[in-house]
């Protein structure tokens, strides 16, 4: 299976769509195809019915959160200031991220090929979080898209039953986002995992001198 081939196949059959191959740096070599969200549904149904091989099995659907990441690199450039050449340090700021991404892993049952990794991105992470639902194409996306909606907050247009899946209905936030903050008003019991250290320290502080109990033994 060649990703370039599939890309040109789709481009020939779905007019107007913009595709981009995203390279993967790991030895797995699973490169992915970024699809614009306007043509997401058409590309998906073409992949299922028209492409060769036909990608009829959508195995995995998941979201990834890419918050805005600003990296500033310092670069030394030579500039001529007042006729004198001098080195000036410039800070170049690049911003990446600031979108939510949905990843589909597609396989072909008959040709036994895959995974074809399909990605779609939202415009930002706040209110432009709509993406087309691919559940009409692959039913297997139904529960998984609900999960992505629940945990990441991507709103899938065209999903037959878009409700929270794992969290309860009144829950406000989206826990899998990178900037999610744990609430501190849970009625939890003092044996909770992260608290074990603090609790033990408090326990010993209340007992008085830390090693007093050990000396008497």
């Amino acid at each position: 299976m060649n990703l370039e081939e599939i890309k040109s196949q789709i481009e020939a059959n779905v007019p107007g769509c913009s595709l981009q191959i995203l390279l993967n740096g790991s030895p797995s070599g699973q490169h992915s195809l970024l699809v614009d969200k306007e043509h997401g549904l058409t590309v998906a149904s073409y992949l299922r019915d028209g492409a060769s091989p036909k990608f009829d099995y959508c195995s995995n659907v998941t979201g990834v959160d890419w918050p805005l990441k600003e990296t500033s690199t310092k670069q030394k450039t030579k500039k001529i200031v007042d006729g004198v050449e001098s080195e000036v340090e410039e800070v170049i700021k690049t911003a990446t991220g600031n979108y939510l991404e949905v990843v589909y892993h597609l396989f072909s049952m008959d040709a036994r090929q895959g995974p074809l990794v399909l990605r779609m991105r939202t415009e930002d992470r706040v209110d432009q979080v709509h993406l087309p639902s691919l559940t009409p194409v692959w039913r297997s996306a139904e529960l998984q898209e609900r999960e992505v909606y629940d945990l990441f907050g991507v709103v899938f247009d065209g999903h037959p039953d878009l409700r929270r899946l794992l969290m309860w209905d009144d829950f406000k936030d989206h826990p899998m986002r990178k900037d999610y903050v744990d609430p501190d008003d849970y009625e939890y019991e003092p044996t909770a995992h992260d608290e074990v250290l603090k609790r033990m320290q408090a326990h010993y502080a209340a007992q008085g001198a830390p090693s007093a109990s050990e000396e008497t033994r």
Binding site: T191, H193, V196, M200, Y204, P210, S211
Partner: peptide, 10 residues
């Protein structure tokens, strides 16, 4: 170790 505690409930 001046202190070495394991919380076996965790």
């Amino acid at each position: 170790p001046a202190k070495f505690d394991i919380d076996v409930s965790v």
